[in-house]
Design a protein around this nucleic acid. Structure first.
Length: 425
RNA sequence: GUGGGCGUAGCGUAGUGGUUAACGCGUCAGAUUGUGGCUCUGAAGAUCGAGGGUUCAAAUCCCUCCGUCCACCCCA
């Protein structure tokens, strides 16, 4: 029995009718990046697994449960990139970008891989727009990457967005806070949901965003990190929010915002559709990661960045009613009535294409009616018809498919004839 | 990783135990023989997601698997 192949679970084909959306997003990202002085970088699709174990944190879900890890034939432990930031930081160090003018602004769009259970807006292979500013501790650049992502989404026609903003302070004060948080929860430990009991050990910050009923009664009384930031982090945070207000960006402080990667400090943010209840609605998120470069063996280097999922952006565009037309049609569709015309037709098509006209030839074996139908559904502006008479005369009947009179034109003049009519590029 | 809904031609659907599984869109072809769109006619296209079971009889009932969607978890 023959096997029916399907795209692997959690992956998808991007068919021609969706390509305009992808193009819109990638072009807009490149353009917004340019406006902010970013340069494009491309890094490999796989890296040493250790890069993410060290960089993203080996107890994070992304690394521990979701990473596609494999050994190559030389025994090297590799991983399909689950997230972009460590790869870019690796490249920053590997190519000595510390000696470029600082800060270094880099962006990319590339596929990410996570072995996760797929649902709408969540895929095993997804594509991220990734922007990073490396080498600046200025709160203004925190605000700038938020503004950049905001502007990108706005340009793509997505409205009704909210920035969720938080600060998770620097590592030292955060450790002290986590201790206070655990002290608070410890007496209630056996009343918490099983999930939260695990969180208590693994990731106490997450205790606060539990949705489990059993955990809710304890939430209000718990200390909030954002309320007791260190003076430095508080000042930084205030500067970020002030800049966002200047930029007229709608943000709300989310005291419980936690991100899934270990390297963040101070600013963390997400951009979500304000009117969407879905769990997978977050279109982008990021934050500051001042410790990461050093963790990867470089000098202490402050940095901020974000990742944004293109599939989710497109979902949002569609939810916002953004409709993009299919790609441009043909300029000419050549209809020929006899296989004897094949040679002439093939050469003509080449000439038209060299003149910059998108040209397609009807199927040799098919009837004229059939080829005219194809010409019509191709969206071509002109049908170029070569029957017995035209073949003998070295000309063709050029018929505008949008309406208008058909004219007989010598083969050598067809390109100019079409280029002279309106609608040519 | 946990729980639930769904799975019938390329797409959207009808059919809930009983003759060769129906319709719309799409595809291909034809409508007195050299001209598209509209209309009409016809054809191709489905081992009813896969495998197993119950039954004289299964798209329809049961089990397993796969896929998809939703929630949890997590994240973009």
């Amino acid at each position: 029995m023959t096997q029916r192949f399907q795209a692997p679970r959690g992956t998808q084909d991007v068919l021609p009718d969706m390509q305009p959306y992808w193009q819109a997003v990638t072009q807009a990202a490149a353009e917004i990046g340019r406006l902010h002085g970013f340069q494009r970088i491309d890094t490999p699709i796989f890296e040493l697994a250790a890069l993410f174990e060290k960089g993203s944190g080996d107890t994070t879900d992304v690394v521990e449960k979701e990473m596609y890890v494999f050994q190559d034939r030389g025994g090297e432990e590799l991983a399909l990139t689950p997230e972009g930031t460590p790869a870019i930081c690796r490249a920053y160090l590997e190519h000595g970008m510390a000696s470029w003018p600082q800060p270094v602004r880099l962006f990319t769009t590339k596929p990410m891989f996570r072995y996760d259970r797929p649902q709408k807006g969540r895929y095993r292979q997804h594509t991220q727009v990734d922007c990073e500013i490396i080498g600046s501790a200025d709160p203004l650049v925190d605000a700038e990457v938020i503004e950049l992502l905001w502007g990108l989404l706005e340009r793509l026609g997505i409205g009704n967005l909210t920035v969720r903003l938080g600060s998770i302070d620097d590592p030292e004060p955060r450790r002290a806070y986590v201790e206070r948080l655990k002290e608070y929860y410890r007496p209630y430990l056996d009343q918490l949901s099983p999930d939260s009991q695990r969180r208590f050990e693994r990731n106490p910050l997450r205790l606060l965003d539990s949705k489990d009923e059993r955990d809710l009664p304890f939430k209000d009384g718990a200390p909030k990190l954002i309320d007791e930031l260190s003076p430095e982090a508080q000042e930084h945070h205030d500067a970020v929010t002030e800049a966002l207000r200047e930029a007229r960006i709608d943000y709300e402080i989310d005291p419980l915002l936690v991100r899934g990667l270990d390297y963040y400090n101070r600013t963390v943010f997400e951009i979500v559709p304000a009117d969407d209840e879905r769990a997978q609605g977050t279109v982008g998120g990021g934050g500051r990661y001042d410790g990461l470069i050093e963790l990867l063996g470089g000098p202490p280097t402050p940095a901020v960045g974000f990742g944004s999922g293109i599939e989710r952006i497109i979902l949002e565009m569609q939810r916002n009613g953004v409709e993009l037309p299919a790609g441009e049609g043909l300029d000419a569709f050549i209809v020929h009535m006899t296989p004897a015309a094949r040679g002439v037709v093939f050469r003509l098509a080449g000439n038209l294409r060299r003149a910059g006209l998108a040209t397609q030839i009807g199927e040799s074996g098919r009837s004229m009616k059939s080829q005219m139908r194809s010409a019509n559904s191709s969206g071509a502006r002109f049908a170029v018809i070569i029957g017995e008479d035209e073949l003998a005369a070295g000309s063709a009947a050029v018929k505008p498919l949008g309406g208008g009179d058909q004219e007989t034109v010598p083969l050598d003049d067809i390109a100019t004839h079409i280029l002279e009519r309106p609608g040519s590029q």
